[in-house]
Structure formats: C-alpha cells, structure tokens
C-alpha cells in the first residue's frame, strides 16, 4: 500500500511543519519577553536614558499619521466600493493602490526625505515622519475600507435608496455603520504596522528626542521606540547599558503588538454582536 504510506508520511510531515511554525513563534515571544521583561521598570521609562520620550513619540506620530491617512484612505476606499464604474480609470486607481502597497518602506522613507527634509527644508521632524508614514497606511486603508463596504449586503443599499435617500445619506446612515466592525479591525491593523515602522522614520523623523518631555511641537525631531531599538542595537554608545535598553525596548514593542492584536479581535467582535442584536430586535 504505497499510496497509504505516502499519505501517512505526508500527514506527519505537515503536522511537523505546523508545529515548527508555532514553536518558532513561541520561541520568539519567550526569548524577547524573557530577556526584556525584567528591565521594564519605572527606571526604564523615566531614568536618565529612559524611553518615555520615545514611547510618547511613537503614539504621537501614529496619531498624526492616522489623521493624515484616514480621510483619504476611507474616501478612496468608499469610492472604489460604492461609486467606481468598471472602466480604465478605476483600473488605474486599483493598480496605483496595489503598487503603493508594494513599495518598500525604505523607498517611502527616501521619498519623504526628498519632499519634507530637502524640498520643504524642514529637517527631521515629527510632521515629516507622520506624513510619510501616512503613505504607508494609505493602501492598506483603501483595501480594508473597500473590502468591508463590499461585505455589506446589496439589499441594504437598495432599501435605503428606494426610500429616497441620497447616496451620501445611505453611506452615512446605513453602509458605514454596518461596515464599522470591519473598518475598526482594519484601522487597528494599520496602527499596529505603523507603530513598528522604522525605515521610514529614520530618514524623516530622525533619531533624536526633543529635550522637552512630551513635546507636541510637530516640527521637533521625534525618535520612536522602534527607531530607538535600531539605534541602540546597531550603534551602541560606549558607557551606556545599551544591551539592557535594547532588551527592554524589544519586549515593550512586542507587548504593544500583542495588545494591538487583542484590540483587533475584541472590539470588532463586540460591535458585531451588538449590531446583530440590534438588527434582530
């Protein structure tokens, strides 16, 4: 029974492969958290080379980049899902979104450097960093918006339009609320990715932290946590405990990723549950 032996052999191999993938992830998390968690003390955040400035910058840049990218990303996604006719123009926009999604982040970084650092002469700023980061968010936002709007049943639109609502009223009152869980999942996904981005920010937001704590000036340089990890790991300054800082920063980044992944599933499930309940009642 050769075929059956091959079948069993292959099944065992595939199980081994799957276990290997999971083991790899567990090993990753155990390694990073095991090395870094002991260093995550109050001193690590607020000590003389503490990372609270970087932590603040990470979220500040993320926040600004979402402000820049959300309106455009949602708008383009809505257009693609609801308005776009099947023609050359639509195809061109779809091709641009796909191309934008495939641009390596370092190319975004250099583009941001040409525009914000050199053409506008701003130097390394939080503003330039977040505007360039917004370009990375855009294609994912467009795709997520389009997908979640397309998942809304056709009958919802038809019912609303048949009642005499305009397209905009239908969008605002019917389609967007129904698609909200999907949109929130997508935005969390984008935020998680933007939070860990490094290559873009090195060339646009720089590798310095403002002397003022929690500096909200968008024209200040703003090193984020991820950039900080790169800086201390690739050019350790003599005399500092850079290895410990790197271990702690990596653990903090991973914790943030895990929290974001939890955020990804819980609120969207809750919303879905609520909306379904409301529709039934």
């Amino acid at each position: 029974m050769k075929a059956h032996q091959a079948n069993r052999f292959a099944s065992i191999l595939l199980w081994i492969g799957a276990v290997a993938i999971l083991a790899l992830l567990v090993a990753f998390l155990a390694l990073i958290l095991g090395r870094g968690l002991p260093y995550l003390t109050a001193e690590f955040f607020s000590g003389s080379d503490g990372v609270r400035g970087q932590l603040f910058n990470s979220f500040y840049i993320l926040f600004l980049s979402l402000i820049f990218s959300l309106p455009i990303g949602l708008g383009a996604g809505i257009y693609m899902a609801e308005y776009a006719p099947q023609n050359r123009f639509t195809d061109l926009i779809r091709l641009s979104t796909e191309s934008l999604a495939s641009v390596p982040s370092i190319v975004f970084g250099l583009f941001g450097m040409i525009v914000f650092v050199n053409m506008f002469g701003l130097g390394f700023t939080i503003l330039g960093g977040s505007a360039t980061l917004a370009l990375l968010n855009l294609p994912i936002l467009v795709r997520v918006t389009e997908e979640s709007l397309r998942a809304v049943p056709r009958s919802y639109r038809e019912a609303s339009l048949a009642l005499g609502a305009t397209m905009w009223q239908t969008l605002r009152k019917v389609i967007l609320p129904t698609a909200l869980p999907g949109l929130i999942t997508g935005i969390t996904l984008v935020a998680g990715r933007a939070l860990g981005e490094t290559a873009i920010l090195i060339f646009t937001a720089g590798m310095n932290v403002s002397r003022i704590l929690f500096d909200v000036n968008p024209l200040a340089a703003g090193e984020t946590l991820a950039v900080h990890l790169f800086a201390v790991k690739s050019n350790p300054l003599p005399g500092t405990n850079s290895d410990q800082i790197a271990d702690g920063t990596a653990a903090l980044l991973i914790l943030m990723v895990i929290v974001f992944n939890l955020c990804l599933s819980i609120p969207s499930r809750w919303l879905q549950y609520r909306l379904q309940g409301k529709n039934r009642g």
Binding site: G192, L195, G196, E197, T198, F230, A250, N261
Partner: peptide
Amino acid sequence: LFAGIPSVVYGYV
C-alpha cells in the same frame, strides 16, 4: 501575530 512583529525586533532577534 508573526506579521505584526516590527522588523527591528526581527533584526534584534
């Protein structure tokens, strides 16, 4: 979760 890990953390590992 693998996809969400920042690339600097991969470099660090």
